[in-house]
Design a protein around this nucleic acid. Structure first.
Lengths: 243, 243
DNA sequence: CGTTTTTATTTGTCTGACATTTAAAAGTCT
DNA sequence: AGACTTTTAAATGTCAGACAAATAAAAACG
């Protein structure tokens, strides 16, 4: 682990990169303790605050965790699926909100990915996931549900659909795509008739998955994408007509 | 933006969370300048090093960028697709390497996602992307190519396939799935016959995309998944037989 | 008016110190 | 001897103040 003092980059950045490379490269393995901050400061020939800033950078990426006390220190962190989910969701959300990604583009990506899950979900779904989907459908049918709660329920429904594929890598990849859409969906107001159509499609999808009918599930998702796009277009037309 | 001094969490973590929430919430917009470190230290009633550690955490997530000098400071950063790609790739890579994800699971997720792209790629592919895929196929046919270079070319091929869908959100989501597989693929040694089969499937896929035949493209990807799994199984059997 | 120099501001880094947490070691009582 | 309590040492967390370096605006100068 070396750094280049002649480089223009900040020292703390270089140190963070150096340690990160060691982790990715396998020189530092999970749960291994890094040298103490003072020792790292000596090794890299910098002061302790500089080392600390580097460690904070790594901690922000869940690459290390720190522990205080006598046997404390910085440890290489096992990146859990939960950590990765969370990162994925915030990154995706910011990406969409900051880059003027059209609703259409985001929607297309999301449903393309979900359709990729469907054949696996059909094969592997368990009773829990079917029950979750059905109970969310029931909730979505309640007339006094707010639009926001409706969207939240929608997210839960689709997460169950994705988790039914029983592939944690897929679930991780899709967490962002599904949850990042929520702020965009929240801009839509759903009429009772809109909701009824969506609930009907949800029912169709869950029955297809129950019956292990992959084609019907995919078709249902396709119809849901079309429906969602139509709804969004209606909203945007109304909005532009007002201005 | 407030923090809770009675909380057990570290101050720098709380400050980072507070600023992060302000960005996600829209209170701080892209390119807006944050108060200087000294001002933030006053506002949060902490010392400057503590503020700095908080800012480094945010910088590590590409949420802010810093600039030195008279008009410098910390600015809310527009999270670019490039930044997000890079984060996605390293997160996915670490996730796979640290969690004993089976080759099968990773492979299944990757090809499921790629098949989701195929129908869109068929519709939107341009000449550049077809040319890239064909030139990578040519390279993969060179007998003196190392296994590592073969895998790298494979990644380039598949990225072109994904980019052909012309959906940046999809490309971002898939960057991780495709590139994170590379270290796993690198464990495989490809015989000349293995390579020939893969190249043949790649050719089939690119022709299908050229001909706008979505079904053939999907079938080709399915066959490639099967082929890849067979190869991996062969490697693992050989390896366990040796021990 | 254009160029150069100065200056003020801000981040980057250093030094040294103290506070807090934590587990192990030492001590004490039964 | 064993269980409980106290002490201690090591590590991170935080603070204060200082200087270095970069940078753009302001001032000085030709």
């Amino acid at each position: 682990m070396k750094i280049d003092p002649t480089s223009s980059a900040d020292l703390s950045v270089q140190i963070a990169q150096s340690i990160k490379a060691a982790i990715i490269n396998g020189d530092l393995i999970v749960d291994q303790r890094l040298p103490s901050e003072s020792e790292l400061a000596d090794q890299f020939q910098v002061s302790r605050p500089t080392v600390r800033e580097a460690l904070k950078r790594l901690a922000a990426q869940s690459l290390i965790r720190t522990q205080r006390g006598a046997t404390g220190g910085a440890f290489v962190n096992r990146l859990s699926f939960e950590d990765a989910y969370a990162q994925q969701v915030t990154t995706s959300t910011l990406l969409l909100s900051m880059n003027e990604v059209s609703f259409q583009t985001a929607c297309e990506a999301r449903y393309a990915l979900e359709r990729a899950c469907a054949p696996l979900s059909v094969l592997r779904r368990n009773a829990d996931q079917l029950a979750t989907m059905r109970s969310e459908i029931f909730r979505q049918g309640q007339p006094d549900l707010s639009d926001e709660a409706f969207c939240a329920s929608d997210v839960t429904f689709h997460r169950a659909l994705v988790d039914a594929a029983a592939n944690p890598v897929l679930s991780y990849q899709l967490a962002g795509a599904v949850e990042a859409m929520q702020p965009l969906m929240n801009m839509i107001t759903f009429s009772a008739r809109d909701r009824a159509r969506i609930v009907a499609l949800h029912s169709q999808i869950v029955e297809a998955i129950d019956q292990r009918d992959g084609t019907a599930a995919t078709d249902g998702l396709q119809a849901l994408e079309t429906e969602t796009l139509n709804l969004a277009q209606k909203v945007f037309e109304t909005r532009s007509a007002k201005t």
